[in-house]
Design a protein around this nucleic acid. Structure first.
Lengths: 335, 335
DNA sequence: TTGTAAGCGTTATCAT
DNA sequence: ATGATAACGCTTACAA
């Protein structure tokens, strides 16, 4: 039905082997022959059959991206960074949502990845996740984004430092009663979260400040969660004068909670996040920006290197991308 | 190297044909045989080779999703709806970003789709886009999301009605000087945009109101664009008392512009959007909600039906999903 | 119900 | 530089 490599070969008066070589740009092909083959292929509107090529070569030309969420800002932004690289490389991008913990009943990613991708990119999957382990045991080039794991390539920011920067910014403004809105430390031994908490704690301790347990609340990395967390913090007798939220979206929710209590962010209470979410500027939120698109871009590039170097030649590399404090109106000197 | 169907066949003492049938759940297989084959396959940790299967069967088991943006809210939300369906159906999701118009230099999607997917989902590609036409000419099951085109399946909302609802809401509040922030009517003959404009215009006319050209501004469907558009509207001598923004994100920007001018949304000027973006509740924005996740879900389901019915048996279906006015604090009776 | 065997469209090895 | 040809691992008539 469709045009095959043999049609091209016959039309060009060469063997299929030559067509294959010519079209793939392999060496040892007379340039005149190559040109003729290319012309005929184009004229015949020939496109290679990926299935046949994959079966014969053993390479799939595609990489799998596993992510717990698709529509959340961080994840979709990473994904677009990944896509930009893979597109340029001519690689197919297989998108696969996975369940972290209790989420919902979904097939585990490992079996769905086997024999259909040349490499895997995992976005923000906790390093001790069982499903992630299964994926890693597949033994193919893999690169983590937003988390780090011994022996596996990965791209992250320095989460400890980011949290330190945020906390220090509040300290510099004279705040001492500084609250923190985290995700859910108990359930999710999520690298980023732990590191950010550590950065907060250490910075507080370095400043000689004790951390009041009443200054801590969970926001589950969502807007609604941040709102609840802030509400909780506000109900205590001894309110914080400033709050560090581990993500901008939680900070958004926190700002809403403040307003609901008649408080103005940056005036009555200072709040800082991490991310530099698309809407953070709009909401005038001070934040520690992280290069989310680049997280995906760099990870994809590193993965391609790993794949092309034929497994092993290039050891798994780790990259730490820089963050930057962006001061806006939501933080101000203590009253 | 890897385990093949023959290994399973030998271990089970049957032919590869039987293994193939048994594992795919085809009829005419003794249940005892099937059970044995399944057990052995599992025990051997056998997974089928997609490339081989695709080559032999002609089906790819994957569908391509083409979208101009990955990280924007609307697109990533649609995408997650699509993913949920495809995951359940065991279909691979090939993600492909495309350029609308001037965007950037990217390979056209059609050649990248040929022979590698069984169907295509196109998110918000203008119906007269040349690249879309090439894709449609591929002749495979295709379903559009957010746009409509003669003879092609699709899922949309009633954009005219949504705009009518928004405009009428403002009229009901007593506003007569109602501005509109659109995308960029001249360049992008984008169904949704045209329809929304029509809904606005007709509703204004039905109310006996003339549309002052000074009440119209372009926001390019971005936050920054909405901000600029609103700023433009505010510089005129005769300001609108209410504004209809064709998307929530443009409305966000508009709200910011208002504040920059010392105006309070819902007090000094009313503003309404379309979408019910994740953050619209947070920003207290009145909007006409559209079921974005479902747009993706329904389109994917329809596409699967189209694919399974073997091309032609089921004609391309169109679905129009409902919208709903959600009144929040950004709209109020005219002063 | 099960087996046989001919493809499916490439790639890659080995000659030439 | 080019050609023959054996894989690659499955699916699917067609037989039995």
């Amino acid at each position: 039905m469709a045009i095959t490599i043999r049609d091209v070969a016959e039309a060009a008066g060469v063997s299929t082997a030559t067509v294959s070589r010519a079209l793939r740009g392999l060496p040892n092909v007379d340039e005149a022959t190559r040109a003729r083959v290319q012309a005929i292929a184009q004229q015949l509107d020939y496109v290679i059959s990926p299935s046949a090529s994959r079966l014969a070569s053993g390479r799939t030309g595609s990489i799998g991206v596993i992510t717990p969420y698709i529509s959340r800002w961080f994840f979709s932004t990473v994904l677009s960074g990944v896509e930009s690289v893979l597109h340029n490389a001519g690689m197919d991008l297989l998108l696969m949502s996975v369940s972290t913990a209790d989420f919902q009943h979904r097939l585990p990613p490992a079996p769905r990845l086997r024999r259909r991708v040349d490499g895997v990119l995992a976005i923000a999957i906790p390093p001790d996740d069982a499903q992630l382990d299964e994926v890693i045991e597949l033994g193919m080039p893999t690169s983590l984004i937003g988390t780090a794991k011994q022996g596996v390539a990965g791209v992250t920011i320095d989460d400890v430092q980011a949290a330190r920067t945020a906390t220090q910014h509040l300290l510099n403004l004279g705040h001492t009663r500084i609250g923190v809105i985290s995700g859910h430390l108990i359930d999710a031994p999520f690298t980023a979260e732990h590191d950010r908490y550590r950065g907060y704690r250490e910075t507080m301790e370095d400043a000689g400040l004790e951390i009041d347990p009443l200054l801590e609340a969970f926001g589950y990395f969502t807007v609604a969660g941040g709102e609840q967390a802030m509400t909780a913090l506000l109900t205590h007798r001894n309110r914080p004068t400033a709050v560090f939220a581990m993500s901008d979206e939680m900070a958004f929710g926190a700002m809403r909670a403040m307003r609901a209590h008649g408080l103005t962010p940056g005036k009555d209470i200072s709040i800082i996040g991490i991310d530099n979410h698309d809407l953070s500027e709009l909401l005038d939120l001070t934040t520690v920006a992280q290069p989310v698109f680049d997280l995906g871009r760099v990870a994809a590039e590193a993965l391609l290197v790993q794949i092309r170097s034929g497994n092993g030649a290039v050891g798994p590399d780790s990259f730490v991308l820089p963050t930057q404090l962006i001061v806006r109106g939501s933080t101000a000197p203590v009253a």
